[in-house]
Amino acid sequence: MMKDQDHDHEHDHAESESPGHAAPKEALDEFAQVELAIRELLIERGLITQAQRRKYLDQIESSTSMLGARLVAKAWTAPDFRLQLLADARKAATEFLGIEILHGPALVALENTERMHHVVVCTLCSCYPKALLGIPPDWYKSFAYRSRMVAEPRSVLAQFGTDIPDDIEIRVVDSTADLRYLVIPRRPTGTDDLDESKLASLVTRDSMIGVSVLPEMRD
């Protein structure tokens, strides 16, 4: 944002410029400068390595909602695991997926049932279980979603094409602090014959945020 504001000169970069006109150097905004300075210090002092940083960024940027989907499918098919996931989601996820998410924020799994539907929002910023769901979608960070999901949740869900019957309690979970939330959607009917990996392929990112429900499977 700051970069765009600072970048207010009028010429068009896409057009060829007059010879001798040096391309303007993109100025780093304040946050980028601070990040660079701290990163260089950490590396210089041997506290982290460039390779560790790269690996961590790769892990974040390449993570998708597949890890969350595997957890959901496992919870659907293994009653013991379901209980573990509901009791201590971070521990269960770490052990099952074999990934290191112990240093991230605490994690809570919320189970949707025939009586209760959970949906997650972060009204203050954009807290999101990135380790399990990847990078959050833009709408999740939008002011409209963050404000309207608490003010008029049933209308917002309807806009996502999700009609929650009036006899189902809606629980909007505002991820305000140190916790991250993963919704366990209801298992669609008609999936009794599917194995765990097939089930995982049905579980969508949006169903694990709680803005959608999974469609029934038809023969």
């Binding site: 003010a151 949740p153 979970v173 305000t176 602090a177 916790l179």
Partner: peptide, 26 residues
Amino acid sequence: QVAFAWEDLFPAGADARGRTLILADL
């Protein structure tokens, strides 16, 4: 984790169908 009745927070809301709770970590 604290639960609030939705209608206590948004009394003028036009969304009052069924029971809705807002839960937040405080």
